[in-house]
């Protein structure tokens, strides 16, 4: 299975959030580095994705799609920093 970038989750996350999460910065719970969600290392496909920190390989985000719901596990990010419009 090949690795993609966090960018590739933009569509799936866009179904959940009103803002573009891939342009947001997370702070990694594992190593403390801050980076764009779009820069995460991504495995899996639309049914289930695992995104890891490019600095320490810890799992930052997991996204699982079922027919009638979606599960988002963000325990690997201690915070998200979101750019506001016009910034």
């Amino acid at each position: 299975m090949s690795k993609l970038d966090g960018n590739a989750m933009a569509g799936d996350l866009g179904e959940i959030f009103a803002f573009d999460v891939t342009a947001a910065r997370y702070t990694c719970a594992g190593c403390g580095q801050a980076e764009a969600i779009g820069a995460l290392m991504l495995w899996g496909q639309e049914m289930g994705r695992v995104a890891r920190c490019p600095h320490c390989d810890d799992v930052v985000l997991r996204l699982v799609q079922a027919n009638d719901r979606v599960f988002l596990d963000l325990r690997g990010a201690v915070r998200l920093e979101l750019p506001l419009a016009g910034s």
């Binding site: 569509g11 891939t22 342009a23 820069a39």
Partner: peptide
């Protein structure tokens, strides 16, 4: 089709 998406790249 779903999009446009991705504000990073």
């Amino acid at each position: 089709l779903r999009g446009p998406v991705g504000g990073w790249f």
